[in-house]
Design a protein around this nucleic acid. Sequence first.
DNA 1: ATAGCCCTCAAGTCCAGACAAAAGGCCGTC
DNA 2: GACGGCCTTTTGTCTGGACTTGAGGGCTAT
Lengths: 229, 229
Amino acid sequence: MAVTYREIKADILGRITRGDWKPGSLIPGELELAETYGAARATVNRAMRELAEDGIIERKRKSGSRVRLSPLRQARFDIPIVRREIEEQGAAYRYALVQSELVAAPDWVRARMGLAPGGKVRHLVCLHFADGAPYQHEDRWINLSVLPQARDADFATAGPNEWLVAQIPFSEAEISIAATAADAALSEHLACALGDPLLQIERSTRWKGQAVTFVRLVHHRGHRMTARY
Amino acid sequence: MAVTYREIKADILGRITRGDWKPGSLIPGELELAETYGAARATVNRAMRELAEDGIIERKRKSGSRVRLSPLRQARFDIPIVRREIEEQGAAYRYALVQSELVAAPDWVRARMGLAPGGKVRHLVCLHFADGAPYQHEDRWINLSVLPQARDADFATAGPNEWLVAQIPFSEAEISIAATAADAALSEHLACALGDPLLQIERSTRWKGQAVTFVRLVHHRGHRMTARY
DNA sequence: ATAGCCCTCAAGTCCAGACAAAAGGCCGTC
DNA sequence: GACGGCCTTTTGTCTGGACTTGAGGGCTAT
């Protein structure tokens, strides 16, 4: 049987972790590795390419591949739809619309979304509950010049997230995470004390260069995001 | 010139975002696509494979490839070494060791790291400054039964992170993000008010199944982590 | 019915060979 | 000595062909 790229990848990784090939040192070229493993160069290439994607090695034409000095640590977080996230925990999901209005975007939203002055947006405030307890507070702004349908859509029974996914399923987004203190509204909606530290995720989504929506998601007290790598 | 896998990937993605191929629908097979693009099947395969990795499509043998119902949203955050993170912002980096001790791990640390009762650890408290302003507070615990060298290492001038990378460059880790309130020590070290909301990252690292180190990184007030996808 | 077996189909992987592209190094000219 | 332009090395990608693997579907014997 032929040698698989997984075996090669695992073996190379083993040599690196065992210290045979130290950080900063040069790894044999693809041609040489192909010969030692008795595989085609394409196979070795795939193993090496994945190691580079994983941040283990660094590759450059002409110079060759070397083990990274300090391994590039990168964590992938899944950003699920809230409903799915809650249901996967085995909890009952409930949604509530708190506020809904059509307004000219306030300045800070305009800045975040890159809208023209006087740009109209649909502003929604929603709550997501897990087993009856408040789970997430959603403050969403939808650009009506890109999505005029949002003017008449009904968000009383289903969250805007699921509606948006149906409208523009694929888009680019920028996401940022920070800690914030509960203000009066948040403390009431999330059933926590004024000033409690809360995890806040902001996401702005664009499609064909135009801002579609900006959302600020504030989680219940004590929420944590976890990833492995 | 031959058709590149990037062109094919971009074209397929275009058809999906334009709505030619709707979420949930089946995409033509690799063989058919190879013919329409005039490329080899391996080339089409690479394009499709990457689309699957990006969470755009779902692939199954026998049944074929279909557009995901709701695109899997996942964000990749780079977790750089603090010093690098600060220097890349063009700020001057300064490190300070606040506390250093050899102790039996307290219960909560033992639980987090999965240590035996009475397990000895090196406990360090450090501060990282950017342009003189406190940037990050580091509360680190190192398992001495895995890394006995940590007993005598000197952390007065360089942070434990860089020392650890040299000892065990490659390891598995679990990372979790949450919001926390500044206690007395944090508010003093990070120059903020008592109770201020702060972004906290916890990371526990293991190597060959053994817990190596657990660290709690608390950032200065207002810090945010950003990613794009 | 139902458990077990085989066939088929589509993705997954591999190969040997070829050319492309980036990035060093070398050499000659000015 | 400085500046280009050429050569070489190494990774990056494409081809066309083959075999492998996993999952469905259907057939058969119990």
